[in-house]
Amino acid sequence: MQKNKIPIRPLLAVLGSILSVQIGAAIAKGLFPALGASVTATLRIGLSALMLLAVNRPGLKTLTKVQWRAVIPYGLCLGAMNLIYYLALSRIPLGIAVTLEFMGPLLLVVFSSKRLIEFLWVLLAAAGIALMTPWNNTNIDLFGAGMALLAGAFWAGYIVLGRRVSAVLNGGEAVTIGMLFALIITLPFAFASGGMLNFNSSMIIPAVGLALFCSAVPFSLEMYGLKYIPTKTFSILMSMEPAVGAICGLIFLKEYLSVQEYAAVVLVVIASVGATIGNRENIGKIAPDV
């Protein structure tokens, strides 16, 4: 084993997934006024599932019981995470939503860490989150904030379940089948909202872009990254989500940052870089077979 050689592609895959998701979130916010959060989430997952089915063509008939037991909860968790996060995103700014959602992966890091240096990076990331979270802002929508925190819990579950399913299925098959089960969660809410009646031809291109940027591309990249990067390292790398979310919110949604939020971005990026460098000896390990 070459301990000094860092596999760059898994790292780039995770970073690419982060940027892709935030661009997609900005697209989603443009669809919320007409379609609502649940319909937008369903479009995201449904179109992504169709794209992935065409590309990957998973062999559903050949899956073993072990594989089904891994992919079903993964897919259901994926659907819940997306639906709940979009409910949050429809009520609060992108940077705040991502920051609150990140509490789930952050707590996962805390519970899985064993070395003291890892707690330093967690504390830095936590400080960044604290700066980006306007707890003293009485105008923040409490339901939206609560949904973002709940989405964070499902995000932590997605990381754990994604690690498990990546050990028994290749990334393409896992994401594709997972998307089908994610639809089971979102479809009832989409039909109940009545927002599907508002969909028209002018929304086709944004909907396709949403599916590509939010699901098809990033989840495939994440599954590849999870195959090679330990869960705790992956989780701290994802601490870049609040920073990227705030930047994308500024660029695409004109959600301007305060000096306090810029300071938070710096802390979160430092934590991410420190975690990556500090765990370089673990990054190349393959997930064990089940």
Rank of each mutant, 00 (worst) to 15 (best):
V122R: 00
F252I: 10
N139E: 15
L180G: 08
P230G: 12
V208R: 02
G225Q: 06
L221G: 08
L237I: 15
A153W: 00
A127V: 11
G128S: 10
M132I: 11
M147G: 01
A167V: 02
L180K: 09
F213A: 14
V244S: 09
Y158F: 15
A182R: 07
F181K: 07
G144D: 05
Y158R: 00
A125N: 09
T176R: 08
S202A: 14
I140Q: 02
L183N: 04
L187E: 01
L226I: 02
V175E: 03
I205Y: 06
S220N: 13
P206E: 07
L250P: 00
L183M: 14
S193N: 04
G171P: 06
C248H: 03
L180P: 02
E255D: 10
F181P: 01
Y256S: 11
L149K: 02
L124I: 07
A182K: 03
G152S: 09
N136K: 08
A148G: 05
C214P: 02
L123V: 15
A246T: 15
K227T: 13
M147L: 05
I204S: 03
P230C: 12
A148T: 05
L257Y: 06
A145F: 07
L169R: 07
V168I: 06
F191P: 02
F181C: 10
G195K: 11
A145L: 06
T233D: 00
L253E: 12
L221K: 06
L253S: 11
M240G: 11
E173S: 15
I159Y: 02
Y228E: 01
A246F: 01
M196P: 00
S201F: 07
I236N: 00
A190Q: 09
K227Q: 13
G209L: 15
V160E: 00
G209D: 05
A125V: 09
N198H: 14
T186R: 03
A192R: 10
S215C: 10
V244E: 04
V122F: 01
T133M: 07
T231R: 06
T176I: 09
L180E: 02
C248Y: 02
